[in-house]
Design a protein around this nucleic acid. Sequence first.
DNA 1: ACGAGGATGCTCT
DNA 2: GAGCATCCTCGTG
Length: 206
Amino acid sequence: MRCRGSRLSRAFFARDTVRVARELVGTLVVRRLEGELLVARVVETEAYRGDEPACHAYRNTQRLARGELPRGRSALLFAGPATAYVYFNYGVHWLFNVVTEAEGTAGAVLLRAIEPLRGIERMRQLRPAAKRDVDLGNGPGKLTRALAIGPEFNAHPLHASRELYLAHGETRVPRSAIVAGPRVGISQARELPWRFHLRDHPCVSR
DNA sequence: ACGAGGATGCTCT
DNA sequence: GAGCATCCTCGTG
């Protein structure tokens, strides 16, 4: 689970959502697009755990506790670790999450910002509104555009994909370099410090 | 620098 | 019909 440059295994995601969110900071997102490799460093994440009201699967977790089956969009969050959960937000943007926890327990980590490393020219084509390279992926809706991640990746197995996966970074990020704080843009459970980002990194969202 | 507001569509009540 | 896990543009100072 520690090998540098290697793909993150299913076991990596089959753990506590908050811990996965913290440890995802500093890892790499790899997107193979028409033979070209786009690579970026994850610099900001948020944890959404099924037993907490800001999580899409919160209602389904309660339903499950009553002996009913999860249903609807967020039922995917129970499906199993390392599954991609891509959903449409505000009628405008696609947001990219990775499902966490063991199968049958809901959780996901939202990728909120990336630092482009490779394939930057292609990312600029995909996101012409970006003025600087730093703007290519400094927000959850921006990074999905820069990496061409859309609805076709919903329910995608990230542990067994060539088109889209996560990998260990070149260097291990010390925990002291990661800042924890409240999540952005939510109205429920604001007090939980489940947003994680690299300290003073220019690609962190506004 | 900063704040207000619009775009736009899906999910769940 | 309300409420969003957002982004961008256009005002004002």
